[in-house]
């Protein structure tokens, strides 16, 4: 199982007087098979954190270790927008990220497309799909490489409530079935409570403000009394932490 170990991470954009601190002294570890939600106000460095963890950005200082039983961990990323290659079909978009271009990879892609209910759209181009369908392809792509660690950046925020709800269900099923470690950025506290074992709260300026464990049995339903109560409790705690001022 994959583990994430982050030590004294700092990220600054730009230099001199108009530099922006996106992350300040961030340290935390995540054990295997956990789904951690990351919440916080807009601009507090959530996307930056995922970008650093996935290797797109380099940190200004600090270390990041992502390990899978001692070896390199395979990383999957679901971006805030789908980021599909518009000139490739749905199937080719999934095949693009496969290590081996063989039959078993093709079968795996087909399986995950089936899982997001797009098994019959493999030959469509992304431009022919709705926004929600594209996002689902993005999710299938991330799962199809069978990553040890999965980063998800507000994957459902562009979707309507009904699609988002069914995708949350699918995400939960896939997470349960595959025992991955997931970092899940969201603005929606309800979503965080429903899906995760743990919620990391970031404050403006990129500091960790809170770290809570959500100890409720799965599957959770937003309508459940316990889930709703926890959501209210989390929101109450937010009110007491001055998140916006840095």
């Amino acid at each position: 199982m994959a583990e994430i170990d982050i030590n004294h991470l700092n990220k600054q954009f730009g230099t001199g007087p108009d530099s922006v601190s996106a992350l300040q002294d961030v340290s935390f570890t995540v054990a295997g098979h956990t789904l951690v939600s990351i919440v916080g106000p807009s601009g507090c460095g959530k996307s930056t954190l995922l970008n650093i963890l996935s290797g797109i950005e380099t940190p200004t200082s600090g270390t990041v270790r992502i390990t899978e039983n001692g070896g390199d961990a395979r990383v999957g990323y679901v971006f805030q927008s789908a980021r599909l290659l518009p000139w490739r079909t749905v199937m080719d978009n999934l095949m693009f990220v496969q290590k081996a271009q063989d039959r078993s990879a093709g079968e795996r892609c087909q399986r995950f497309l089936d899982m997001v209910h797009l098994g019959d759209r493999t030959e469509s181009f992304p431009g022919e799909l709705s926004g929600g369908m594209q996002q689902r392809v993005g999710i299938a792509r991330a799962f199809s490489i069978e990553p040890d660690v999965l980063f998800m950046d507000e994957p459902f925020s562009h979707l309507d409530a009904i699609t988002a709800r069914s995708l949350r269900k699918e995400l939960h099923e896939m997470w349960k079935a595959t025992e991955k470690t997931v970092l899940f950025v969201t603005h929606d506290v309800g979503e965080a409570v429903e899906l995760s074992n743990r919620i990391l709260v970031f404050a403006a300026g990129g500091k960790i403000a809170d770290d809570m464990t959500i100890d409720l049995p799965f599957p959770r339903d937003a309508a459940d009394e316990a889930v709703a109560l926890t959501k209210v409790k989390v929101l109450k705690r937010f009110e007491n932490m001055n998140l916006i001022a840095s």
Binding site: M1, E3, D5, N10, G32, I52, L53, G55, T58, P59, T60, S61, G62, T63, V64, R65, I66, T67, N69, G70, G71, D72, A73
Partner: peptide, 14 residues
């Protein structure tokens, strides 16, 4: 399962 360390992201110092 034991955890060994294996840096995937290079250490950078400010």
């Amino acid at each position: 399962m034991t955890t060994q360390t294996d840096t995937t992201t290079a250490e950078t110092v400010a």
